[in-house]
Nucleic acid binder design. Structure first.
Lengths: 253, 253
DNA sequence: ACGTATTTGTTCGTATGTATC
DNA sequence: GGATACATACGAACAAATACG
């Protein structure tokens, strides 16, 4: 209707964004907005060539990138299909990775990548309820669940209170269990912040994702039953197979 | 500690990601994780050159990109400073854009970009509590608040129930007010999903953001007081000046 | 069982622009 | 600024798996 042939959307050539990338985003939007649902077959490469008015290679590049993130799966002779419903990570007071593992009947999978100490800042100390200048213990770890879910995590603890928790985590593969060993049998999610950015190379490598695909960043404060802060976490989460969900408990009137 | 000089992090050269982009992400991580807080001065360009072992142009490119997204601000002769606390968009049952405008003492700012009808799908109909094959009314709009907050929105309505709501919105600039005109005085957030992706060119243009910076995607279902679904929304939100916040109402025991 | 059309996968080649050094 | 490596985009052909009458 707009221009020449039967083009779907206006592609901007020479505008700094590769055409295949625009098509990749466009199809991703159509999936996110529900035009194509889980399990649906996408238009064939030939049809997409007609829709966008580009070479087949260009369409294939877009599809390959979507497949790389697990958003679609291609089957020779049949077509390209939208992947199943992405995993929904519910953000409530019981949000923790061990709960995700439970949903997959998976064992604790944490692998310690690095750990180090650094002096705290005023902000971090305030959030963790500590004095200024206290030393923080920081861990970097990778945790998985199921076939294609993984997160890269940064965890910050009061180094004095949780001395040696990095070893405990390295041994048992779970912060829930490691915290239990250090005297905190129960803890709960107090606050969560959601943001996004591009991944660091080491994060992308550890998560097995392309370096040019964005990641979700969940920052969170976990507290014990007495509301005393336990840890400040940053979870780096590949985009595509997981999304966050927040339900408002609608109590009428 | 790791390698030769005093390099901060391992930079991967020739790995498909420009060096300035890695530095950009690295500084962004340091801000997100609290190493640099709001208002803090970043290390000088000269210091960063030493930290990363690169040319000053490379550092300047990284800082320019951060400034473009409003994450830092450069002051000639003084230094580069971390921007103030990003706006926190709280996700509770009162989450709506008009609440954000209230926080900024801003007037309704919605501008209708496009509107069209399309047949619903099984999934969308289920979410909106409609019959299959019903026609949806879709609007695309831009809404702002304050100096540097903007969102690009897709809204889906039951076309039969909310006929003409695109005109109402175009006139008053607010869906809250437009819905009131169409008989829905109150509505509430029922469920929210958070994801991210790269922006479409038209989204980036409307929001005034670079095309190579990721955006947050908030999908949400708003219902009226009787829990009847009203609309399904997709808000495209530039990354950098806004983040989502979810608080668990911790009722002990 | 067979043949044909469809669809994805692979491999050549060619040209152009852009980023990086 | 010049040179080189890389990414982008297009074109043509063929191979392999699948669906269908």
């Amino acid at each position: 209707m707009d221009q020449a042939s039967s083009e779907k959307t206006a592609l901007r050539r020479g505008g700094g964004v590769a055409v295949w990338r625009q098509i990749e985003t466009d199809i991703e939007v159509d999936i996110q907005t529900g035009l194509y649902g889980p399990g649906d077959r996408l238009p064939s490469e030939h049809e997409l060539v007609g829709l966008y008015g580009v070479n087949r290679h260009t369409v294939r590049m877009a599809l390959a990138k979507l497949a790389e993130r697990g958003i679609v799966t291609a089957h020779k002779g049949r077509g390209v299909f939208v992947a199943g419903e992405p995993f929904e990570y519910r953000l409530d007071r019981n949000a923790k990775w061990s709960e995700v593992e439970k949903r997959f009947d998976a064992r604790p999978s944490g692998r310690l990548v690095d750990s180090y100490r650094r002096p705290s800042t005023a902000r971090l100390s305030r959030m963790l309820g500590l004095g200024e200048g206290v030393e923080l213990l920081v861990t970097e770890s990778v945790r998985t669940a199921g076939a294609d879910l993984a997160t890269y995590g940064y965890h910050m603890f009061d180094a004095a209170r949780f001395t040696g928790i990095e070893q405990s985590f390295a041994e048992c593969g779970s912060f829930t269990q490691a915290l239990a060993r250090h005297g905190t049998a129960e803890f709960f999610r107090a606050s969560t912040w959601i943001d996004c950015r591009m991944p660091r190379p080491r994060e992308a490598a550890a998560l097995g994702i392309p370096v040019d695909a964005p990641v979700l960043v969940m920052t969170y404060l976990d507290c014990d039953a007495t509301r005393r802060p336990i840890l400040l976490g940053h979870a780096i989460i590949p985009q595509g197979r997981l999304r966050f969900r927040i339900d408002s408990d609608i109590d009428p009137a």
